[in-house]
């Protein structure tokens, strides 16, 4: 019986989990779409002048670069270049952590003067960045697990669904920020 079940699990073609992951991301994107709409419904295009623009740009570039390195890691493992894969994956994790530090440890303390109880912009700003940071955090955790498995040689060409899935999730988190960054820092 258990052999049959395992056989079934192996026989499932890659497009099945891939489709499932896309559905999951579609569902997740509704959360961010709601928050984005709430930002414009409640606050219009208002944006406080004292937002730290340099920091906003810096963390945006960090996250974009992390997507770039994540992409390199995925290509590397598909071509069997394990050390390139690990190097780029580690870079992605570090950039992710830098992003989190930028948001939670630098931007939030600076933004405290419009923190929730006092201002409406704070409500949407902290909720949106917080929700996104939570996803970045979970992405960092997932990538770290993949890194750990990768060092043990769990992945290679043709057996890399774990890497592909984790990297897709990471890109998704990046896409969310693609929309959040202009909505929070750039609109007027």
């Amino acid at each position: 019986m258990s052999a049959l079940r395992e056989g079934h699990a192996i026989a499932v073609p890659l497009r099945v989990p891939r489709f499932g992951l896309w559905l999951f991301l579609l569902s997740e994107s509704m959360i961010f779409a709601t928050l984005l709409s709430a930002r414009f419904i409640l606050q219009g295009t208002y944006r406080p002048a004292e937002l730290n623009q340099a920091l906003g740009l810096a963390i945006t570039l960090i996250l974009l670069t992390s997507s770039f390195t994540a992409n390199r890691a995925e290509i590397a493992i598909a071509h069997g270049k394990t050390s390139t894969f690990l190097r780029n994956l580690l870079a992605t994790i570090i950039l992710g952590i830098l992003f989190l530090i930028g948001v939670v440890a630098v931007e939030w303390p600076e933004a405290m003067h419009f923190a929730p109880p006092s201002s409406g912009y704070g409500t949407v700003f902290f909720t949106m960045t917080g929700m996104h940071a939570a996803h970045v955090f979970s992405g960092v955790v997932i990538l770290s697990l993949i890194y750990r498995l990768g060092r043990r040689g769990a992945f290679g060409p043709g057996r890399m669904w774990g890497v592909e899935g984790a990297v897709k999730y990471w890109h998704f988190v990046d896409i969310v920020w693609v929309f959040f960054y202009p909505a929070l820092y750039l609109v007027r």
């Binding site: 489709f19 990297v167 693609v178 202009p182 007027r188």
Partner: peptide
């Protein structure tokens, strides 16, 4: 009023990531 331009640019960026980094075409 930068909102429309930002929306278009954001969609373009997301499209690049979706297509080339996330391999949407695999579907």
């Amino acid at each position: 009023r930068p909102l429309p331009a930002l929306a278009v640019l954001g969609v373009a960026k997301a499209g690049l990531i979706l297509w080339f980094y996330m391999h949407l075409h695999q579907l």
